[in-house]
Amino acid sequence: MSTEELSKEQQILRLMRKTLGSVVRDATPLGGRPNPLKDTTIQEIKDCFALISDREKELAGQLGFDQAKPYYKDGEQPNSNVLNFVKPSKE
């Protein structure tokens, strides 16, 4: 599978995840009202999110992305230093 095909599949998965999330937000009842979705439908939505996430991880692995590090389109990592702040003791 080429990088271009992977990119297209990643775009499709991202759009599916966003659309499914919007449907869930729109269908979620406010103020303790009963949920219009059946329990089986809610579980199927959760399963869809899990499958999308698993496939996105597989595609990232095929492209060699390290999940622990952020990906930047320009390929450059930001130049920054991490500072640790320690609260001084009251002694």
Score class of each variant (00 low, 15 high):
residue 48 C to A: 14
residue 48 C to Y: 06
residue 48 C to T: 08
residue 48 C to I: 06
residue 49 F to C: 02
residue 50 A to Q: 07
residue 50 A to Y: 04
residue 50 A to M: 05
residue 50 A to K: 08
residue 51 L to I: 05
residue 51 L to T: 10
residue 52 I to T: 01
residue 52 I to F: 08
residue 52 I to E: 03
residue 52 I to P: 06
residue 53 S to D: 15
residue 53 S to K: 14
residue 54 D to K: 14
residue 54 D to G: 09
residue 54 D to N: 11
residue 55 R to G: 15
residue 55 R to P: 15
residue 55 R to M: 13
residue 55 R to D: 12
residue 55 R to I: 05
residue 55 R to S: 14
residue 56 E to I: 02
residue 56 E to N: 13
residue 56 E to W: 01
residue 57 K to E: 13
residue 57 K to G: 08
residue 57 K to R: 15
residue 57 K to W: 01
residue 58 E to W: 04
residue 58 E to C: 04
residue 58 E to H: 08
residue 59 L to T: 00
residue 59 L to R: 03
residue 59 L to S: 02
residue 59 L to V: 01
residue 60 A to Q: 10
residue 60 A to V: 00
residue 60 A to E: 06
residue 60 A to K: 13
residue 60 A to Y: 02
residue 60 A to S: 12
residue 60 A to D: 13
residue 61 G to T: 01
residue 61 G to H: 02
residue 62 Q to R: 15
residue 62 Q to S: 12
residue 63 L to N: 06
residue 63 L to E: 09
residue 63 L to M: 11
residue 64 G to W: 09
residue 64 G to N: 12
residue 64 G to V: 03
residue 65 F to D: 06
residue 65 F to H: 10
residue 65 F to A: 08
residue 66 D to I: 04
residue 66 D to Q: 14
residue 67 Q to F: 14
residue 67 Q to D: 06
residue 67 Q to M: 15
residue 68 A to E: 12
residue 68 A to D: 09
residue 68 A to F: 08
residue 68 A to Q: 11
residue 68 A to M: 05
residue 68 A to T: 09
residue 68 A to C: 02
residue 69 K to V: 07
residue 69 K to S: 08
residue 69 K to T: 02
residue 69 K to E: 11
residue 69 K to C: 07
residue 70 P to V: 00
residue 71 Y to I: 12
residue 71 Y to H: 13
residue 71 Y to E: 11
residue 71 Y to M: 13
residue 71 Y to P: 03
residue 72 Y to L: 03
residue 73 K to L: 04
residue 73 K to C: 03
residue 73 K to G: 01
residue 73 K to M: 04
residue 74 D to Q: 01
residue 74 D to K: 00
residue 74 D to E: 03
residue 75 G to E: 09
residue 75 G to L: 03
residue 75 G to A: 07
residue 75 G to R: 04
residue 75 G to Q: 05
residue 75 G to K: 07
residue 76 E to D: 09
residue 76 E to S: 13
residue 77 Q to E: 11
residue 78 P to R: 05
residue 78 P to S: 09
residue 78 P to F: 12
residue 79 N to H: 08
residue 79 N to A: 06
residue 80 S to C: 14
residue 81 N to S: 12
residue 81 N to L: 10
residue 81 N to Q: 14
residue 82 V to N: 12
residue 83 L to R: 06
residue 83 L to T: 03
residue 83 L to C: 02
residue 84 N to W: 02
residue 84 N to M: 04
residue 84 N to T: 06
